[in-house]
Design a protein around this nucleic acid. Structure first.
Lengths: 358, 358
DNA sequence: ATGAAAGCGCTAACAA
DNA sequence: TTGTTAGCGCTTTCAT
């Protein structure tokens, strides 16, 4: 019964490997990291010894010495929405396959985000890259990141000079307008006018596209038919309640998110109204649950968005490495990130909650 | 146009603070970390200087020197289920408020988890504590963690000797049995027999409680009425389809998760069956959308579970610190973690999908 | 209460 | 191709 004192000294260090393989630590480091200028035979021997000793470099030591962290940070407004969880899932899978640790940070307000970026938080000492999901990034923030050597890819929002995964939200609005008008609706509402704490421009764009689409199709707008919503279920229910008591209620409503549409559905049921028959309603997201209630919606990738963002980020970080290796000299910081990717695909999914006006 | 070479040398180090405050680095370190044996005046001065210099310690350096990481790792089977996302959300919030970085790792198979724990991954160099959500932890794994000084708290699964947040899943089964039998059902089914890649015992326990409850109430069991399901929507739909084509279909079904119940609902609608009227169905979780379809379910905390787990973990880690500080000598590793917490509360939520048998 | 100095385990110049 | 060595920025004895 040995006195378990501490678990000190059972972990192999680079020196153990070096002496066991009969080379210097520098060679071990090079060999294991796939750097050039190592004889194939040496490299193999080192690898074998390392494996046998169960060695792998201490991340903290490597970070301290090398200056980068092999860590990516995923920034989200919250983790309990369907869309965001799925994006995170996709991003995490790819990053961790690529050997990166992935940190996650939930942002309650834009103040939280500033704090994350504030000099004193030492973000650049914690992470090599950021995947920011639906949290707006101000121009000076984007620049600050670039100048600090932190790579960035965004999802659902844009950041000047950095790659972004997004869908064409204007087009989303157009599609909704077209679909509803084709069904003969002309008293149409919208749920989801900005009211979020952390406001991105997805709401703004979808709305704009909707408005544009409607007027192009000659449909008159009634501003009172545009109601607030934070993209959650409850907001949707409240919004629908407000719409249904209007002097002249809408015959169709476009909800900027499926979740709000679900709330709206609750309210309709409460009032004995049949979706599609009494009032048409459609959302955006193709939430897993939309199929359950047969909600017409506009579908886009989810995990795909996370994967795509991760891919861009990884590429950017790899490029950064190369750069650093190549030119120790100047290059104006802010040109990283080939920016604007093509918009991700979206498609209208016609289901039962929208139908021709009676 | 200065040659932006690199962003080197604008970050304050502990030495900058030391010299600016006219003390040694050791004193700065003590002062800033709230250690004893620092004159109040000195401490204040150091703090002021640090603030002014926008100093904060480099995490990698601190980790390397101190041996712990101020990082907690959340381990999940996947991130796209409603329950798990919410648990993660709660845990993340608490841990990051406590000043910990939170890493997230998605486990595809139990092999992935073993890899995480394998000596060569150096988990103890990456994290101080683990929150494991619905990923089974083998006994030797739990011991290994304890001996390596990694704290552990689990959610939805147990790990010998470590605190766990859980609900009484046997009781969940009992509640379901009682509810259905009280409504007069006696041909009852169950959806969700284990079929998951990473199988915990929640399914086993719920089922067992259900079976027990039913027999206690004198209801006969038909094994063919127990069908597989991986807790997702599609599985629920398939399961329900199978049940409905049985020679004698059930009059009520208990789905081990709300999501599977949603799938079942789809199938019922597809066949023109009315939930509650034609067949009663209930789930477990009180998923956000259960309200939308008026699903009877068994509710439990969600974010609360994550928060509770985080709380236990933080306490444990704090205790670990104290221990280390107090006795540099022996103490049998595996006694950390006061283990078994009381089960978290659960409640039956009666809604429209269950009703008295006709 | 404070300081000096020895690492923590690795990476990256620079030499050889 | 390989080895030597100077850090990276902090924590922690051990002195004082």
């Amino acid at each position: 019964m040995r006195p378990v004192t501490t678990q000190r000294r059972d972990r192999a260090t680079i020196e153990d490997v070096a002496s066991a393989a009969g080379v210097s630590v520098a060679t071990v480091s090079r060999a294991l990291r796939g750097l050039p200028n190592v004889a194939t035979s040496t490299r193999q021997r080192v690898k074998d010894v390392a494996e046998q000793l169960n060695y792998s470099p201490d991340p903290a030591a490597a970070r301290l010495a090398a200056g980068h962290t092999r860590t990516v940070t995923v920034v989200v407004p919250h983790l309990n929405g369907w869309y965001i969880s799925n994006v995170v899932a996709g991003a995490e899978a790819l990053c961790s396959d690529a050997g990166y640790d992935v940190l996650i940070v939930g942002i309650g307000s834009s103040a939280d985000f500033s704090r994350l970026l504030s000099a004193s938080y030492q973000l650049e000492r914690r992470t090599d890259g950021l995947i920011v999901i639906e949290v707006p990034v101000a121009e000076h923030e984007a620049e600050s990141l670039a100048s600090r050597g932190i790579s960035l890819a965004t999802v659902g929002v844009a950041a000047a000079g950095h790659p972004a995964i997004r869908i064409d939200n204007i087009e989303v609005g157009h599609i909704a307008a077209r679909h509803l008008v084709e069904l003969g609706h002309d008293r149409v509402a919208l749920i989801g006018v900005q009211k979020q704490p952390l406001h991105s421009d997805v709401a703004v764009d979808r709305r704009r596209g909707y408005v544009e689409g409607l007027s192009e199709l000659g449909v008159e707008l009634d501003p009172s038919m545009f109601v607030e919503g934070d993209f959650g279920i409850d907001a949707g229910q409240e919004a629908m309640a407000a719409l249904l008591v209007a002097r002249i209620p809408p015959t169709a409503v476009f909800s900027l998110s499926d979740e709000m549409a679900f709330g709206a559905l609750i309210e309709m049921k409460r009032r004995g109204l049949e979706p599609g028959t009494d009032v048409s309603i459609m959302g955006v997201d193709d939430h897993a649950f939309s199929r359950v209630v047969d909600l017409t919606t506009i579908s886009h990738g989810v995990a795909e968005h996370g994967i795509a963002a991760a891919r861009l980020l990884l590429a950017q970080m790899a490029r950064g490495h190369a750069d650093r290796r190549a030119s120790t000299d100047d290059h104006q910081g802010v040109d990283l990130g080939t920016a604007s990717q093509p918009a991700m695909p979206i498609t209208l999914v016609r289901r039962a909650t929208t139908a021709a006006v009676r």
